[in-house]
Design a protein around this nucleic acid. Structure first.
Lengths: 190, 190, 190, 190
DNA sequence: AATGAATGAGAATTCATTCAT
DNA sequence: AATGAATGAATTCTCATTCAT
């Protein structure tokens, strides 16, 4: 099994899973995902050995999308603030553009089917962002804490920000900016 | 006459549900909860009409616990910082002491079974905390945002903090304090 | 168990059972009957050892009501036609007045819980009616058939008649009369 | 592609349902029907969405069988008596040959799960029989009654007749003939 | 590879009956 | 005797996964 022929079909299934799991939680039936993807029930299992495998691959796929959003045009040479803001904006914008991606992540994050390994891979910082976060740690109130802590705060604050943008889409820019200032202040870089 | 419905048994079921749902997600079987609670499968349904009702009541119960933790000894007359810190500490300490409560909340928050009404009731700010948050909004970068935004940031940052305390329990105090400073900075009150 | 104290309560349960079984079939829960009767769930079982016992006693009770309706003022000395018509009218009128009784009978008749003995007791002809039916058998097309056959035809025709009276209550008398003529013709006594 | 849904299997389930419901009433478990049909419990639900759907389709199927029995070789051009007798014999013979079909019908008729629409469809007169019954209504004692009344009387009398044939199978012919004479007399066509 | 029917192990409830009060 | 909570077997239906086509 799991001998995918068509990359399109695989993506259709991942997209369908995003939508369906976002709306109904990860206990949604695989049959519904197959239907949404326009493939037969059984076909899903030639692309993903089991529902758990689908869950895990979906997790990685969505996380990869988020990463990419943060890294595109990343100002590797910019100031700390520029790099932080780029990452922040990347996160927030991604969240606004991909509400379903965000919802699945919420579902997958609490799902028991995601392996620790996948979770670790998915939440490890990455690329220039990792360096940026590390730099942000130095000095300030967080200087003694675990390195990943700033990253966690940033994600948490960005998530809260996105939630409010979803409620007041017209003030998206204001929230994104205010949220960033809050984050920037939080890490003591004001 | 007849055996009265037992508050103890109801609580036993809620406790069992907390544990089981925390560990296995809300799709865990009611039978497992019943067993964990030491009652018959059917008994669960004399206390909670359906699994969904149990889910909703559990949500409210856990939220109530968190609220209470934040309000005990609340310094109504203290400075903004004192009140904010009290609420923060209440939140973080509750989370550290009730890891399972925190996990169920995570599960219930993304559960499709929780009604909007219950969600609203559960997340409404409360008591002096509401005033404190409102006061914290004035001035600072968040002054123009929706009033609940600070509350959301506080919860998000507290959650992140608790997560790191769970990883490094020995440095609980340090994380709690650093987290609060970050929050205090975030809202621009330094 | 089954040590009834109050005849009233017993009757209340039988009445409730008539109503509930008529509406929902014999698989209706005993709890519903108890509620309808205004007694506790458990109380039902002090009056009737089990649901099956209740079913059987209800069968006999309803049948007894029908018998009584046919026998009241029975013209023992009247002509065959007079007696037949009296029985016919008694049956039809009873059915019209007791639609629920008729519906439970329909349910109980096909119920697997009614013992053969009870069924036999319930459907045995009775009193003067038995003689009337026997007399009706002599001569005519049915003369060679089993004695109970006329009785069965009469019941069947009366049931059909009642059904149509329920649809057109205003023409009750017409149906009752026409039905009887049909029956009288059927047994070749015209 | 894929295994096509099998008409055989569908029929096996309907046959099994006929047998099981006839013996144990419509509250018999679907699992028993599946076992009797030689399919898995779940398979029943790929052929019938729910137990109620099965009940309704079974009703229609059995009724269709009865209809067909009455219509085969129907003497459209025959005299009223010939046509009536053909329908009568068709009914009675069907009942004798399909005792289980008759029992399920009895069960289904009082079942709460059969929709009014299906009941209507099932009991509507049909083909030449409809005309025959209408013709039988003219003149005679029933001339003023609802058109369906003769049909109801015929069914009722045929059912009674079948019941007695089941008790005395050896005199089947005698009962069938005597029953028809009674019916013919009943509608005043002697 | 694709399809969707077949499978049977659950899952949430229901309910007759028992039993503590 | 009356009450209604407690029980757990039984029931309908779902669903991941397999497999014939």
């Amino acid at each position: 099994m799991a001998r995918p022929r068509s990359e399109d079909k695989r993506n259709a299934i991942l997209d369908a899973a995003t939508k369906v799991f976002a709306e109904q939680g990860t206990s949604a039936p695989t049959a519904r995902i197959a239907r949404q993807a326009g493939v037969a029930e059984g076909t899903l299992f030639t692309y993903f050995e089991s529902k758990d495998v689908l869950l895990n691959e979906l997790y990685l796929t969505v996380k990869a999308g988020l990463r990419e959003a943060m890294l595109v045009d990343y100002p590797q040479k910019g100031s700390l603030r520029e790099r932080a803001q780029h990452a922040w904006n990347g996160y927030v914008n991604w969240g606004v553009v991909h509400p379903e991606g965000r919802k699945v992540m919420a579902q997958l994050t609490v799902s028991t089917g995601i392996t620790d390994e996948v979770k670790a891979t998915g939440s490890a910082p990455f690329g220039g962002v990792q360096d940026m976060l590390r730099e942000a740690m130095t000095k300030g109130v967080l200087r003694e804490m675990a390195p990943a802590f700033v990253g966690a705060l940033m994600s948490a604050m960005a998530e809260a920000t996105i939630t409010f943008i979803e409620r007041e889409p017209k003030r998206a820019e204001a929230y994104r900016a205010a949220g960033f200032e809050a984050f920037w202040n939080a890490i003591g870089k004001s």
